[in-house]
Design a binder for these strands. Sequence first.
DNA 1: GCGCAGAAGTGACGGTAATCACAGGGTTTC
DNA 2: GAAACCCTGTGATTACCGTCACTTCTGCGC
Lengths: 236, 236
Amino acid sequence: MARYSHEVLRGLLAKHMLFRDASARLLDGLVKFATVRHFNTNEEIFAKGDPGNGLYGVLCGRVSIYTASQEGEEVFLNILEPGEIFGEIALIDGGSRTASAGAMEPVDLLQIHRDHFMPFLRDNPELGLSMLPVLCERIRMNVEFIEDAVFLHLSARLAKRILSLAEVHGRPEPCGVRIGFKLSQQDLAHMVGATRERVNRELSLWREHGVISIDDGMILLRKAERLKQMVEEISA
Amino acid sequence: MARYSHEVLRGLLAKHMLFRDASARLLDGLVKFATVRHFNTNEEIFAKGDPGNGLYGVLCGRVSIYTASQEGEEVFLNILEPGEIFGEIALIDGGSRTASAGAMEPVDLLQIHRDHFMPFLRDNPELGLSMLPVLCERIRMNVEFIEDAVFLHLSARLAKRILSLAEVHGRPEPCGVRIGFKLSQQDLAHMVGATRERVNRELSLWREHGVISIDDGMILLRKAERLKQMVEEISA
DNA sequence: GCGCAGAAGTGACGGTAATCACAGGGTTTC
DNA sequence: GAAACCCTGTGATTACCGTCACTTCTGCGC
């Protein structure tokens, strides 16, 4: 497993909006409690319903936050990049995990245990104030997710998702924007709450029309405008 | 408009979980900033996208929190009872309203302006700590809403909604539980994200089977067990 | 190189729910 | 008390999407 120095861990936390206003001393105090854990691809970090006893930060790799029905059908709520923090809901209210988390690739995580974090929070209530906007941001994301799920058809949901992936992970190329990692159609289906077959058909259609092309499992977005149109038009 | 004494207003706040740990002095300080506003049935309290400059508490009446698509299609995210608080998201992060709020009946609201609340919050950071679980609760509700929307068919969503309405507003009667206020089928449709016609058909079916009956627009839940079964069974 | 697993691609079919259209009942308004 | 309006009830039709079933393709390990 990779080793991380105190400075590197502190750097990860310092970059996050949660600790934007935090003093160096406060960060140092918190990093003392941090441990590093490694997870392999597809390994489960925690499951929905588990007791929530830790806060996590992504050091490297991508982490999926997802929920599943009784039948095992999965839907991704979020995909986290290095530098992002998760697991704060159950940490704060002491309840069970609202969703599951899994490693989409080999992942190193920073973990701070609830037993360390909560006393620290009580001693530094200004940290609580900083957490408020973080939670608000989660709520805004969730509300947008709800709106999309209820109002938009699959084509619009998928278009929106691919546009946002291109925005976050996109590398410009001569004839468009490349989404820089492999993404199975099953994963895409999980993101938009649909079946693999349905996503396949939609992508095939777009490929025929030259809106996207796919080489080696990586999507090249050629006509972003067309997708933006779809999000607007097909909403009803 | 009804008048509310300082003590009544303080009582409303004191009962809320947000102020569970709050001292009397803190509450008094906050109530000084409170104003009372009245809204008539169907009047809009604020709209999604508005600048969020106030925290509200429900003194009397029911308030709906809803979001709408560009085409005007509406979905209720929540229905608030007297004693509940809303509008805290945009208040905290200074962003725009994530959803709209409307009066479902004549409503009196307590309002605290952002210009008063935020300095107060900075001076009393322990209040910030109390807000964290409140926001977590919102997130848990939203995640459950997402799961229902994605995983459950209409019949199960509607069953779940009616069971929860019966739990909150139910009065026991000889042969079941009465949901104690009029609720149009259009409103129900908004709650579960469906059309009025679809809800009507489902209710008609349930009435035929003696699961519910409806007198004067108010639902009498006769066989709650049957609805609970539906939530479990028809999930896939 | 063979076999196997996982991903992609496609056709046929069925089911859930939206849409459109209209009729009847109850309430409010003047 | 007639008109206007909203809510309810129901039929016919259509659209979207899931399910099932199958084939192909692409690594990947042995």
